[in-house]
Write a protein that binds this DNA or RNA. Structure first.
Lengths: 205, 205
DNA sequence: ATTTAATGTGAGTAAATGCTCATATTATAG
DNA sequence: CTATAATATGAGCATTTACTCACATTAAAT
């Protein structure tokens, strides 16, 4: 049976500054291990050693290993959402072609934030029972895409806006993600243009 | 330091039929555990129990846990390649639009083979040091796409065929993969048309 | 029928890992 | 300055897990 391990067992919340520093060290060490040594080496004793902190300190602030991953995920997803949300306000004043380019560019920027960490983190968060923020992020992006397409419905030839939203959102998400991972083998500014051009052709054609 | 654990330590190869049956049971049990219980529960003792086999038997045929995953990956990738290769011969006689639809359809078929297993398996294979067949599969698909685009160069407006191949290949791969995971919420035959239509617009537009 | 090779078994071992707790140190409050 | 709360420590326990090995069973060879 699967149990949510990411929210139970309440722990102390940092009050003094040194303790929130400890928390940051733990999270940074975990991120570092994930990227440079892989999930297999992510164990609490090792995290403590890399963070320069004792195991006990970890369990002052995190109920278990899973909540460390969850918090790492929360922070990362929040960063991405911030970047993407900031771009939304620019869209209404732009024409369709420009708007698509801006969207792709924004998601690209979001993915440039520690792309390796993003990849490994999403992998591991998907294994975390009860952690729903990855799906939440996807849901938000899908909704944003759909309301954007609705606002441009008169310019768009597609009949099924739900399906079109799925296609647009998945295409942006995946092409930027893969592009960033393959950079600099792939020219990201060229890819941004290519991607938005494809979507423009698709939506208008 | 990272070490290839997927090829070392040679083990007995099955000679009698009961032994290759044992091997199959081990692989099937592993696949079942991965899909229904997750990577966290994939340990050799549990595999043995589910397979109805003793731990010792596992180590008669697999040098370590990693080689089980590797073999599972090999078989899965071979299946996908078989399906995709079979479609290649049809392409030359088709016009661009039909050919794209056929390609998307083929990759969709390949992904319909145990989509959940595919997802988890690719996740875990990426963590396997020394296992290169996932990248190999991607490389093959990229090359096939590129030579296909070259053969249609006169119909295609794109200047950078390498970049276009990347875009086309990634788009097909991801949209089919995600589509299959979201089915039946997503209508796969509609998605196939939508995807190939988008690529057609992109390449000719 | 007997020997030999192939295959199967599972208790047991060594190592890894999540986590606790008794204790020590540091900061803040009165 | 003292008392109390907050924070930090790390040895060590309980559990899990990869893997071995001495032995048992089954099939093939002669």
């Amino acid at each position: 049976m699967k149990v949510n391990k990411t929210t139970s067992k309440p722990r102390r919340k940092p009050a003094q500054s040194r303790s929130s520093n400890t928390v940051d060290c733990i999270l940074e060490a975990s991120a570092h291990i994930l990227v440079s040594e892989g999930q297999g080496k992510l164990n609490t004793n090792h995290i403590a050693k890399i963070a320069g902190v004792s195991v006990g300190s970890i369990y002052q602030y995190f109920g278990n290993k899973e909540t460390i991953l969850a918090e790492l995920g929360n922070r990362h997803i929040d960063e991405m959402l911030t970047i993407i949300m900031a771009t939304l306000q620019k869209l209404p004043s732009l024409d369709l072609k420009e708007a698509l380019e801006t969207m792709v560019h924004a998601v690209m920027d979001a993915h440039k934030q520690e792309p390796q960490l993003h990849q490994v983190l999403v992998r591991e968060l998907n294994k975390l029972d009860g952690y729903t923020r990855v799906e939440e992020l996807d849901g938000v992006l899908l909704n944003l895409t759909e309301s954007f397409l609705k606002s441009r419905a008169h310019e768009i030839s597609s009949e099924d806006l739900k399906l079109a939203s799925f296609v647009v959102m998945q295409t942006i998400e995946n092409l930027t993600h893969q592009g960033v991972l393959f950079a600099p083998q792939i020219d990201l500014s060229k890819l941004t243009k290519e991607c938005s051009h494809m979507l423009y052709c698709y939506l208008t054609g």
